[in-house]
Design a protein around this nucleic acid. Structure first.
Lengths: 161, 161
DNA sequence: TCTCCATGGTGGCATATACCACTAAAGATC
DNA sequence: GATCTTTAGTGGTATATGCCACCATGGAGA
């Protein structure tokens, strides 16, 4: 007899156990896809997250760190940490905004542009691999749903008084 | 004039820039939802991932580490690292399998069971918060799609010869 | 029985990510 | 002009996660 926790019978299958949880299923799928993209992108020396960050910086045309963090739905200090290896390896550089010295802007170096181009070729292979399996429309539909999630406003207080 | 990379015009909006990438949109949504679940679960002292892991162990009825890793689609050595704080804090313990000494099994301690019950109460609040915003059917549909992704077989070689 | 291969797990190292305290800079208010 | 509040970012610390080399154990085959 399965253990009953607060009146809810627990599923027995290990894989489906997590499938009740929105967060856990998202993380598991993210690990799955992350493994594919990282594997394909390994030839460039970049992680998939780093390729995405270079792309974001490229598209943002010297974006402020705060703007990148907001677009990625990422904590600003976490973004600061994530940028460090890319700065160390010479792919990006930061500089102070001319109007507001609090603001740090980010841009790709020439080496970074080159690395991004190399990585984008591999990125397309990974996209193709995934979309060949699930279908282009399914993939687009999923991305749209995920964008809606990312845009949700939970009204989380940054600091509780 | 937007910079053209290999014939693909780049979107200008920072948020939608990543929306072309399956992996990046998944990660961004995962950060979003992770922040909600972690915020709600903070009162228990557990991260959402830890609550999910305790739940997985509970449901698995003394599962082997390898089985947990497979169900979570997680690297076994990463799972080993992830278990450490839970072992340190006395919520789980590991023991050798009676039939095969290579196999390590995991179980919740009495403290772990208690902590899981506490966390499950909070988890339900987080689930409710999310599902109130997106709708129960939409949430269920998304979880089903994410489970299909997690179950995909990309045929990644563990080690290329 | 011995050898080879596969499996399960650990430790090391690195990136990914979040929270918090703190500092510097800018804006608002008096 | 001075003071207070807000904003942007850094460093520290911790968990999340993946890859790799390595070791112990078990299974298969000679």
């Amino acid at each position: 007899m399965p253990f009953v926790l607060h009146g809810i019978a627990m599923p027995q299958d290990a894989f489906t156990a997590l499938s009740l949880c929105n967060n856990a299923t998202l993380r598991r799928a993210t690990r799955k896809l992350g493994q594919l993209y990282d594997d394909v992108l390994a030839a460039s020396g970049l992680k998939a997250t780093q390729q995405g960050l270079l792309y974001q910086i490229h598209v943002g045309e010297e974006p402020a760190m705060g703007a990148i963090a907001t677009a990625l739905v990422m904590d600003l200090s976490a973004l600061g940490h994530t940028l460090k290896p890319l700065i160390r390896d010479g792919f990006v550089e930061t500089f102070a905004d001319s109007n507001d010295r609090r603001i740090k802007r980010v841009r790709l170096t020439p080496l970074g542009r080159q690395k991004l181009e190399e990585a984008m070729k591999l990125w397309r292979v990974a996209q193709q691999r995934f979309e060949d399996m699930v279908g282009k429309e399914q993939a687009a539909s999923l991305r749209a749903a995920l964008d809606r999630i990312a845009a949700l406003d939970f009204d989380l207080p940054p600091a509780a008084p």
